[in-house]
Computed example of a mutant assay.
Amino acid sequence: MHLTSEQMAELRELAGSRDVPADVALRARIVLGSGEGRRRKDIAELAGVAPLTVDRCKTRYAERGLAGLEEKRRGGPRTQVPPQVRARVIALTRMSPPAESGLSHWSTRTLADHLKRREGISVSWHYVARVWREENLKPHRSGTFKISKDPAFAEKVADVVGLYLAPPGGAVVLSVDEKTQVQALDRTQPVLPVTCAATEKRTHDYVRHGTTNLFAALNVATGEVLGECRPNRNGATFLAFLKKAVKPHAEKEIHVVLDNLSTHTTPDVKAWLAKNTHVHFHFTPVGSSWLNQIEIWFGIITRQSIRRGTFASVNVLVKQIRDYVNSWNENAKPFTWTATTDEILAKVRLVQTSVKKLVNNNAK
């Protein structure tokens, strides 16, 4: 049973926690053993269960994740957490921790502890983790963005966010970027894990067949993506892709959100913009690619199609990407942008304050 490093870490924490029922921790150890490459018979013997129980735990985890390890209680429904508590967990997760906490982002344990100490709400970290999974919340990623040193940071944030929240009437907003050096890896069977005193590692043999560069343009209003793989990444290939991306919208005003790569501002690109005055560039602040919605889509295609893929050649990789884009567009939906300019700037100020306090404390 193949598990990601994130899944392994989550299962280890669950298996060793005192905050979950013993039967849930046992099932977590069973699935963890399978992910470590142990034999079914050995797992059953160590856990003190029948081999069929091992199979059942693996199946439930494969189908439902950690929720599949929980047992449905007999004699009545499980105690429900009030809806307002769940709403409070979600709301806090989407905010930065208080400046006085010294935290850059929430973890399940720090959020549960904050709720108990500051607001008198008692929930386990396990409950917080379940809410995060169900709502697809990842504060350890969204709360650790790089602090931009761009002197026009506030103006650029307001410009881009304004396009997301209130696009000009009748205009088209495209989010454009390139995912460079996407590798075509041909993976073989995983090597058996080597266990040391304090660490456990799993490695994979693979053959590298080359790379490609994925250019993509997301229509912010519809969620549709134009994706194209090219062997080279330079001003000429970017301009060729840009022309292709704006062609279907030639009769409309087109606003393009992109970052500050030199390939986006070559003399040829500038000359083309001067001739096509209906196309307008909007640059994200330096070091703030998280503000570009296409980065969200790049993360999705990486997780769902590329990262675990096996590609015997670059052509196979390119076909996989093309098929994924076509499948995505069959049921495309736009991302919902909710953060306002004021909220983003306030969050940045909180992070800056936390960093300054940390530096000052370390200097003492």
Score class of each variant (00 low, 15 high):
residue 148 S to I: 09
residue 141 R to Q: 15
residue 141 R to C: 12
residue 94 R to W: 06
residue 127 Y to Q: 03
residue 65 G to Y: 02
residue 77 P to C: 10
residue 63 E to D: 15
residue 113 D to V: 07
residue 111 L to Q: 01
residue 71 E to K: 08
residue 125 W to V: 06
residue 127 Y to N: 04
residue 126 H to V: 10
residue 78 R to A: 15
residue 120 G to S: 11
residue 101 S to I: 06
residue 69 L to G: 06
residue 87 A to M: 06
residue 78 R to L: 15
residue 98 P to W: 00
residue 97 P to M: 00
residue 79 T to W: 11
residue 102 G to C: 12
residue 106 W to V: 03
residue 83 P to G: 11
residue 139 P to L: 07
residue 147 I to W: 01
residue 103 L to R: 06
residue 123 V to P: 01
residue 141 R to D: 08
residue 100 E to R: 13
residue 145 F to W: 13
residue 78 R to M: 14
residue 89 V to K: 03
residue 90 I to E: 11
residue 136 N to P: 02
residue 70 E to P: 00
residue 77 P to M: 10
residue 117 R to W: 01
residue 75 G to V: 03
residue 57 C to Y: 05
residue 81 V to E: 07
residue 99 A to D: 03
residue 111 L to G: 01
residue 137 L to T: 02
residue 83 P to W: 12
residue 57 C to H: 09
residue 143 G to A: 07
residue 82 P to Y: 00
residue 134 E to Q: 07
residue 65 G to A: 03
residue 147 I to K: 02
residue 135 E to R: 15
residue 114 H to Y: 07
residue 144 T to F: 09
residue 108 T to C: 13
residue 61 Y to V: 12
residue 122 S to N: 14
residue 120 G to R: 12
residue 73 R to T: 10
residue 106 W to G: 01
residue 124 S to D: 07
residue 141 R to S: 11
residue 60 R to T: 03
residue 112 A to E: 02
residue 73 R to K: 10
residue 140 H to A: 12
residue 128 V to E: 00
residue 87 A to K: 08
residue 88 R to N: 05
residue 98 P to Q: 00
residue 122 S to R: 15
residue 142 S to P: 00
residue 61 Y to E: 13
residue 63 E to Q: 15
residue 102 G to I: 10
residue 75 G to H: 04
residue 149 K to H: 10
residue 146 K to A: 13
residue 119 E to Y: 08
residue 122 S to E: 15
residue 80 Q to D: 13
residue 128 V to T: 00
residue 75 G to D: 02
residue 87 A to H: 08
residue 88 R to S: 05
residue 118 R to L: 13
residue 85 V to R: 07
residue 142 S to I: 06
residue 133 R to Q: 06
residue 145 F to I: 09
residue 143 G to M: 07
residue 134 E to N: 07
residue 94 R to P: 00
residue 139 P to M: 08
residue 77 P to W: 10
residue 75 G to N: 04
residue 70 E to G: 04
